[in-house]
Amino acid sequence: MLKILKYSFYDLMRSRWSYVYFMFYLLLGFVLLFLNNDVDKAVITLMNIIIVLTPLIGTIFGVMYYYNSKEFTELLLAQPINRSKIFMGQYLGISISLTLSLVLGLGIPFVLYGLFQSAAIFNFSLLLVVGAFLNFIFVALSYNIALSTENKIKGFGYAILMWLFLAVIYDGIFLIFLVLFNSYPLDKFSLAATMFNPIDLSRILILLKLDISALLGYTGAVFKQFFGTNFGLFIALGLLTIWIILPVLRMNLKVKKKDF
């Protein structure tokens, strides 16, 4: 598995896209800090970007890589190698290279602008950790979609739809529910609803750490009570881990049965 991981990783590193992605974050970091020169505020702006963009790029990279390397994968499958090792290698290769681009791309400008002297270091690390989780989750989800769909165009379509659903439509449905049933106590419902969406979960986690929870009123207080403590933080990160494990398990099952 390590060999395949290494191969996928180097393959991606050699391809221009990894660098483009890295340069994009690097530029973004510098521009953000150049524009307001305040590490604290830059972290807030960055949150919006990480929560929307990281899943999107993870999704597209995952699908693209699967379809592009399909012929090579079939060649590998002819060899006496365990199937799940091949796909796990590829999966980890993409996820790790994407995460590396994110962490280095954003880390370098922030460190240069004095992150270590700033109180924002914890928030910033949380942001990167959440970004890494989102990378792993969305690459796994998109790999699942690609494995289940032979048609390239359809696969892309489903993957983008999945991103659109989790990033936008889910919140819309959530909002409609909250407005429709506002005469009922909704705090437990909101808590559960955020857990079923990794993007919402990450957003709430960062928002609470940025201490705007007082703004969120009663529901916010319930959330703060749940996620605000260290225990809650671990639960949230645990939930994100489950969001990685479930798609990866399904991927392995699918791979075993799939007729290539």
Binding site: M47, N48, I51, V52, A167, V168, I169, Y170, D171, G172, F174, L175, L178, V179, N182, L186, D187, S190, T194, D200, R203, I204, L207, I212, L215, L216, G217, Y218, T219, G220, F223
Partner: peptide, 20 residues
């Protein structure tokens, strides 16, 4: 405006849907 009607919706603050 929505938050004024239904305070619970504040939980969606800074979501992409809200921006849209």
């Amino acid at each position: 405006y929505i938050v004024n009607k239904t305070p619970e919706t504040l939980i969606l603050l800074r979501s992409l849907f809200v921006d849209i």
